[in-house]
Amino acid sequence: MKRKTLQLIKQSTALASMSAMVFLTGVSTLHAQDNSVQGNIAILVNSLDNPYYAAEANAAKAQAEELGYEARVFSHSEDVNRQRELINSIVAQGANGIVLDNADSSASVAAVRYATEHNVPVVLINREIPEDGIAIAQLTHNNVQAASQVAEAFIEKVGESGKYVELTCNLADNNCVTRSTAYHRVLDQYPDLEMVARQDAGGELLRAKQAMDSILQEHSDITGVIAGNGPVALGAIASLEAAGITDVTVVGIDGSNDERDAVLDGRLYATAMLQAQELARQGVNQLHQYLETGETGESEERQLFRGVLITEDNADYVNDFEYQSN
């Protein structure tokens, strides 16, 4: 009996140590050798299970590696504290530069400043911070232009009167607020166009579908839905399809492959494709330029990138947030 217990304990300990060894070995093999010519760039984005951020991260990594850097991708999952901790570790690890899609605008200022003070230049992509002079460049999508064009397309289809619903993305994100404001800047100029409901769908597909379900119960005579981002638009479409409604116009912004497919199917009227890949590539290029010459090569810190209006005519050109017009 004692021998058996002892044996059990021995086996368990052995198993535990073996598993530990296996995983630690696995971890160490993932630690690439630092043979790069140029240096080390860290790419820090939001959750990688979102195709937008995955597209950004992959494009940045590919571009960095093409320029001869070793590139590592990290995710802060929209947690500002985790972002700060990651930047601390990245700087301690000796990175030469950071490409950052930050977790929140004002809360990220301290973290970007920390990196800059430790001689690690930071290029911000997609989301800005409210202070200039800290990051070497801030590349963002022209959300206002994209939203305005989408709203104008919406009006062309829906007409200048009628009832519509707005489902926003996560209003804690500045970009989302910008889009919503831009939509209203256009839509509110038409007094016969009435917004009967506005819900914060958090930028998520399921939440948008559920919100739309509830709204449809109360307002069955709407003619259009304007969505703050891609997943929300797709959620609204799912809800309308489940209810068997086919004559409601839905528009959104983002331009993922799922939205492209919905546009080609005729379920989504229009969207604006944000040039995630181009943004990430340019970010890496400017970082590289700065590391080589001390300047990014651009006269302005904050630079805008155009969102491309996507309708049935040009949806074919969209692939992974890249507009391939040739």
């Binding site: 929209e78 947690d79 500002v80 504290n81 700060r84 929140d104 004002s106 809360a107 200022v109 301290a110 973290a111 804690a172």
Partner: peptide
């Protein structure tokens, strides 16, 4: 501590 380090009060901190 976290707010002091971030210099911002963020509602989703601590998630």
């Amino acid at each position: 501590v976290v707010t002091s380090q971030l210099q911002t009060g963020h509602p989703m901190t601590g998630d």
